[in-house]
Each structure stands twice: as structure tokens, then as C-alpha cells.
């Protein structure tokens, strides 16, 4: 479904991504593992159009070229991003955040159905529709961020470090919800430092190191990969 070919991103002289190839199949959950500064966020931002990749790249969704498409047109293509740090509209209410999630043309028809799905997924949001989003707890704000992204009725949902700064119990609940979203047929592309829990959720993964893909495979293979075990799981190979 999503195919990245020869994706490179540089900020001035700094090379954030170097010739990355990656694919996500329909309905598949894929995780990108890597340390801080490995280029994980740049990868998601490049797909969303927020950073401009180097020429020669091809980013396609079902054969449709996305490189060079303005960021505000990406939701209409069926791709939603939950950015690092959540990026919710803190001064607006939960309801307003969700309504804006359905701002794109693609989202309008199925708006009511998506809202029901989100409230079923996160009953807390249904209880707090009128609350100003910025006054909620970290876990609740992450629910708002995921809910807002889902409102655009995406075929591919991308999440940048959704577990960051959350208590382990909350992370568990969040990943249960992500599992249900994946089961509903939405493809997930996840960037995470919490390797254990994301390899349980994902079917496949890529290992990114200073801007290059240095490993890829099924979740089971990655769990046994010496590099992954040593770098992220704190285990001896």
C-alpha cells in the first residue's frame, strides 16, 4: 500500500535519512525502531509533507505519488499523523479537536461513525467532550491526539512515540486501543522506543540507525535479532 523508495532528508549539512526503502501493506502494523536521532521522526514527517525530501525520492500510496504534495492535502490521501508531543489544540475542547480531525473532505461522510468508534475506543473522551484539551492528563491528551487523527478516516495511521512520558499502565491501555484500530483494518506505522510492547503489536519492523535501515523482518525475527536485543532490550545476544 505505502511504498518509500530512496528517501533521503537533510537539514543543512546534517543527513537525517539516507536512501531509506520501506513498505507497509494494507492493514498491516509496522514499527520503526531506532535510538534518538536515528531519523524516525523525519521519516514520518517526510511522508506527511512537513519536511521536504531530497530529489529522486518516491513516496507512493497505492501507486499515487505523494512526494511534493502540500502537508494540508495529505489527510485527503488517507494518511494521518499523530506527531511527537501529540500536537493537540490545547486551547480548544475535546469536541473541537475531534471536529477539526474531520476537516478534510475525505473525512466528512463518515464523521459520525468515526466519532462513535473513537468514543467506544476511549470512553474517557465521551465523558469529557466539553473539556479544554490542554487541561487533561498526558494519557488523555494522547487519546485526543489519536482520536483527532482517526476522525480523518485514515487508511494509514502514523504515530510518533505515542508512549513517550506516559505511565506503564496507560501505555498498556493505549496499545490495546492501537490493537483494536489495527484490527479494524487501518494500517499502522509506528515509531517507538518502547521496543517490547511495540514488537507485540506489530507484525513487521525496521531497525533504523543514523538515518539508514540496518535491519528488517517480522516482529518475531526482530525480537531475536542480536542488534535489537543488545541496543533496546538490554539483553545479551
Amino acid at each position: 500500500m505505502l511504498t518509500l523508495d530512496a528517501l533521503s532528508v537533510r537539514y543543512g549539512k546534517h543527513i537525517a535519512l539516507d536512501n531509506v526503502h520501506l513498505r507497509v501493506d494494507p492493514g498491516e502494523t509496522v514499527v520503526i525502531l531506532g535510538a534518538n536521532g536515528a531519523g524516525k521522526s523525519s521519516l514520518l514527517k517526510a511522508i506527511s509533507g512537513l519536511v521536504t525530501p531530497e530529489p529522486g525520492v518516491s513516496i507512493t500510496l497505492d501507486g499515487h505519488e505523494l512526494a511534493g504534495v502540500a502537508p494540508h492535502r495529505i489527510p485527503d490521501e488517507g494518511i494521518a499523523l499523530v506527531p511527537e508531543g501529540r500536537g493537540i489544540f490545547t486551547a480548544l475542547t475535546v469536541d473541537e479537536n475531534l471536529a477539526l480531525g474531520a476537516y478534510s473532505r475525505r473525512a466528512r461522510a463518515g464523521e459520525a461513525r468515526q466519532r462513535d468508534f473513537i468514543f467506544d475506543l476511549f470512553p474517557r473522551l465521551a465523558e469529557r467532550r466539553k473539556q479544554i484539551a490542554g487541561t487533561m492528563s498526558g494519557g488523555e491528551q494522547q487519546m485526543v491526539a489519536i482520536g483527532r487523527a482517526l476522525m480523518s478516516n485514515p487508511r494509514l495511521l502514523m504515530l510518533d512515540e505515542p508512549s513517550l512520558g506516559l505511565a506503564p499502565v496507560v501505555v498498556g491501555e493505549l496499545f490495546d486501543a492501537l490493537g483494536r484500530i489495527g484490527a479494524s483494518g487501518v494500517a499502522l506505522l509506528l515509531v517507538e522506543q518502547n521496543v517490547t510492547i511495540s514488537l507485540e503489536l506489530a507484525a513487521r519492523g525496521y531497525l533504523l540507525e543514523v538515518g539508514r535501515v540496518v535491519g528488517e523482518g517480522s516482529a518475531a525475527e526482530l525480537k531475536e535479532d542480536p542488534a535489537v536485543r543488545q541496543a533496546f532490550l538490554g539483553l545479551n545476544a
Binding site: 506527511s48 509533507g49 512537513l50 502540500a70 502537508p71 494540508h72 492535502r73 495529505i74 489527510p75 485527503d76 494521518a80 499523523l81 506527531p83 500536537g87 493537540i88 489544540f89 490545547t90 486551547a91 480548544l92 477539526l100 480531525g101 476537516y103 478534510s104 473532505r105 473525512a107 483527532r148 487523527a149 480523518s152
Partner: peptide, 12 residues
């Protein structure tokens, strides 16, 4: 509130 997030939801 956030021009960056506004783009993400499809606002020009």
C-alpha cells in the same frame, strides 16, 4: 494554537 498541527488535519 498550532499552525503545524493545523496542517496535519488538512487546514491550508
Amino acid at each position: 494554537v498550532s499552525p503545524q498541527s493545523a496542517k496535519l488535519v488538512g487546514i491550508n
